[in-house]
């Protein structure tokens, strides 16, 4: 009887222990691919989110800025220009990998490329959610640190021709599973621009709070030493209907 109780106690304690250490084990066992996916989710890859993005470009002692209202669902994005006033009414739509730009002086939305310049060093594609987990192949992983934080440095190679960047070095926090830094390279392998990310915002999904992008600083390393800062407001989770990402509805 005592042996039976002892066996039961050992069995129960094993279950309790396994439950207690489970979160740590899951965290430790996260694959590189899952880590990239979590980093993507902290950049907007969600079922419906609305935020504002303020973009400031600093170059040659001249500062320029703009503010966008962004609705995002998965990798679809609708951005409306809020400021400056001269850009009021301008809109940007990305749907199913297609991208259009509209402004009131145009009679119809025009197709554009994600690599086209938005402001300063920021391209139109930079306001969209990243899909590095699916659109890039991990060619190399290193353990390293960024500002004292343990990170994994991924070398990502584009696995399709529709990506804005061909090669990316991407630092993801080992504990927080969010991106902290990126280097973007040209086709010829030259360092094109760098980005530093902060995630001081949060969103609550299924009653679980998770970190969310709050700031990206993009520096141009190829042409000048200019800097473009993208600040993200608090994100609001919201249902967004299909028609809102429909180009036929972009004019109004």
């Amino acid at each position: 009887m005592n042996k039976l109780l002892t066996k039961k106690a050992i069995f129960l304690s094993a279950i309790v222990s396994s439950l207690l250490i489970a979160p740590v084990s899951v965290s430790a066992a996260i694959t590189d691919q899952q880590m990239l996916l979590k980093a993507d989710q902290a950049r907007g890859n969600l079922s419906g989110v609305v935020w504002n993005v303020a973009i400031q470009h600093e170059a040659n002692a001249r500062n320029k800025g703009m503010t966008l209202n962004v609705k995002s669902r998965g990798f679809d994005v609708l951005a409306k220009y809020l400021a400056p006033a001269r850009n009021k009414g301008n809109k940007l739509l990305m749907a199913n990998g297609n991208m259009w730009f509209y402004k009131p002086s145009l009679s119809k939305p025009v197709p554009i490329s994600r690599r086209q310049k938005l402001l300063g060093n920021a391209a139109y594609g930079d306001i969209a959610a990243t899909d590095y987990a699916n659109s890039y192949k991990i060619s190399k992983v290193e353990d390293t640190t960024v500002s004292g934080e343990a990170c994994k440095k991924f070398r990502l190679v584009s696995n399709n021709k529709k990506n804005t960047y061909d090669l990316i070095d991407y630092w993801v926090s080992s504990q927080r599973h969010i991106a902290v830094k990126a280097h973007y390279y040209t086709v010829s392998g030259k360092l094109f621009k760098t980005a530093i990310m902060e995630h001081n915002n949060s969103v609550t999904i299924n009653d679980v709070s998770q970190p969310f992008i709050s700031k990206i600083v993009i520096s141009d390393t190829l042409v000048s030493k200019s800097k473009t800062i993208m600040k993200f407001s608090k994100a609001k989770i919201r249902k967004i209907n299909d028609y809102e990402f429909n180009v036929s509805f972009l004019r109004r």
């Binding site: 935020w51 504002n52 303020a54 209202n69 409306k80 809020l82 400021a83 407001s233 609001k236």
Partner: peptide, 10 residues
Amino acid sequence: SLDEQDTAYS
């Protein structure tokens, strides 16, 4: 503020 500005559209 940046957080408030989206009310104009939402």
